[in-house]
């Protein structure tokens, strides 16, 4: 899931300074789960903007915002409201925001900062476990990704700074290499780590278009 954090109202208002009328678009998927762009957040934003004297011409929760055809379909009946607005406030991820801009041709302001692809640990707690490198190493590393979860993206074991199983960069976090080592040791599969992992092919993470099928 794409993890987002809502920008502060003050920050959003600064971006909307020149706009009197605003249309708000949320997202039914990731932003809903992150509570940054679902129905409740969109309605709360409407109220907050109106309280500062802005006019909200309309709002929608797209299903999901990054789906080009669905956006077209859902925004079609709201054409008048969208056209009346000076700016669309997007409460989705950075991709959804661009899809909305593409579909409407309107000026769009992002209401969220887009952070990472992550796991929901519990309500309001998210963790980045994959950085979309296009060259998965999980079968070598006990199902724990050092590319995404080690701050130095180390592929050949822990750096010299891990202590007590904690990461030297973020001492509140676990050293993922410590965990990989212990997991493979318990499984009797430490031999997997003896092989020198070759440098990553980062070009694999640069793919821009996929035409499946």
């Amino acid at each position: 899931m794409i993890i987002t954090r809502q920008r502060s109202l003050e920050d959003i208002l600064a971006s909307l300074a020149d706009a009197d009328t605003i249309f708000i678009a949320g997202c039914s998927e990731c932003a809903t789960l992150c509570r940054t762009g679902g129905e409740p957040e969109v309605l709360a934003m409407k109220e907050a903007l109106e309280a500062t004297g802005k006019k909200v011409s309309g709002h929608v929760v797209l299903e999901p915002a990054c789906h080009l055809l669905n956006d077209k379909r859902l925004l079609k009946p709201l054409k008048t409201e969208v056209e009346e607005a000076d700016i669309i406030l997007s409460m989705s991820c950075g991709n959804g925001t661009q899809t909305i801009a593409e579909v409407t041709g309107a000026e769009v302001v992002p209401g969220n900062q887009t952070l990472f692809l992550g796991e929901i640990k519990r309500i309001g707690v998210f963790e980045r476990n994959c950085m979309l490198c296009g060259e998965c190493v999980l079968e070598e590393t006990g199902g724990l990704c050092p590319v995404a979860r080690c701050p130095k993206h180390m592929l050949n074991g822990p750096c010299g700074g891990s202590e007590g199983g904690k990461c030297e960069v973020n001492p509140e976090e676990e050293c993922i290499w410590h965990n990989i080592y212990e997991k493979l040791e318990k499984a009797g599969k430490l031999d997997k780590l003896k092989k020198i992992q070759p440098p990553k092919d980062w070009s694999k993470s640069e793919e821009k278009i996929l035409r499946a099928g």
Binding site: N156, G157, P158, G160, G161, S162, E163, G164, G165, W177, H178, Y181, E182, E185, L190, L193, K194, I196
Partner: peptide, 18 residues
């Protein structure tokens, strides 16, 4: 370089060997 003082100790030896 090698750090003899990391844990688990086996990981430091593994990296040295690599």
């Amino acid at each position: 370089v090698a750090n003899p003082f990391t844990d688990p100790p086996g990981a430091s030896l593994l990296r040295l060997e690599k």
